[in-house]
């Protein structure tokens, strides 16, 4: 399996035991840890970190949910319990900088942890990839060619409207020499995939359509070969939508980290 890793992923516990400190902590998140589809993105983010030689670590089994779904569902107690426990772990390891594989974790740690005593420099993996492209460390060379392929990007709400990050994920696509097409509802006007606000974990309310189907129909109308995103929630919803429309043979739903890894042959 090419997608398996041929290197060890360092944990914080390992590094501390060796008396070392990481440059950046990779916060994987629950989806990235447990969901099979999202695990592929997680491994690809590690491949990128490994490839460019950044000294990084993960928390491994010491990581726990940020509390985002509890907070969006209205359970502030559970959220703050999770947050304070995580902050204790992060501060215990003297963490300064964090990259997350999920916009929800990103938003929560970046915006909601400081008020509870957790102050870190937090970036989303799309920002890391953009930065590496700008520094010339990632080039879209030596791997799969995306030349001329039609790609459309779906903005995750907690990355886009939630935190104003629209260009970073597009930077990873712009270097591909692919044909980028935007949906009408993009960037500030992006349509939600339907999973935010804890909707992922419940059945939708009665209506005439599921939100992910509405979104996928908009994407498919552009006839893309790839629907790109940078959120494991969106990934799940878009995949389900593409399958619902029987287009999973023709259209790939990929995270920008996966696209970057393929383009660089990592």
């Amino acid at each position: 399996m090419t997608e398996q890793l041929n290197f060890e992923v360092p944990t914080m516990a390992d590094l501390i035991a060796r008396g070392e400190e990481p440059e950046i902590l990779f916060w994987v998140g629950c989806f990235g840890s447990y969901d099979e589809r999202a695990q592929r993105t997680t491994r690809d983010i590690c491949k990128i970190l490994h490839h460019v030689g950044i000294k990084y670590a993960v928390l491994g089994t010491e990581e726990s949910c940020t509390g985002d779904p509890a907070k969006r569902a209205g359970n502030e107690f559970l959220f703050q319990m999770q947050a304070m426990t995580n902050i204790e772990v992060l501060n215990g390891y003297n963490i300064k900088k964090i990259v997350t594989g999920c916009p929800h974790c990103f938003n929560t740690i970046k915006n909601e942890y400081p008020g509870l005593g957790g102050n870190y420099e937090v970036i989303h993996h799309s920002q890391l990839i953009q930065q590496l492209i700008d520094e010339g460390k990632l080039r879209a060379e030596g791997g799969e060619s995306f030349k001329g392929k039609k790609i459309t990007f779906h903005d995750p709400c907690y990355l886009g409207r939630g935190n104003g990050i629209y260009e970073a994920p597009r930077a990873a696509l712009e270097m591909l020499d692919a044909q980028l097409v935007e949906m009408k509802r993009c960037k500030v006007n992006g349509l939600c995939c339907g999973a935010g606000g804890a909707q992922m974990f419940k059945e939708p309310e009665p209506g005439k359509k599921d939100i992910n189907v509405e979104r996928v129909e908009e994407a498919l109308a552009l006839n893309p070969q790839i629907v790109a995103t940078s959120c494991p929630f969106c990934m799940t919803m878009l995949n389900d939508g593409v399958k619902f429309k029987d287009q999973n043979e023709n259209v790939d739903v990929l995270d920008i980290a996966e696209i970057t890894v393929r383009a660089n042959g990592l």
């Binding site: 944990t11 629950c30 447990y34 695990q39 997680t42 779904p69 569902a73 359970n75 559970l78």
Partner: peptide, 24 residues
């Protein structure tokens, strides 16, 4: 159910925290 899992397992699903690093 999701919040119960979160409280007990540190994840929104009924997975063991011990399996959290299996992806690697």
């Amino acid at each position: 159910t999701m919040m119960g899992n979160l409280e007990n397992n540190g994840a929104p699903w009924k997975y063991s925290p011990a399996d959290r690093f299996n992806w690697a």
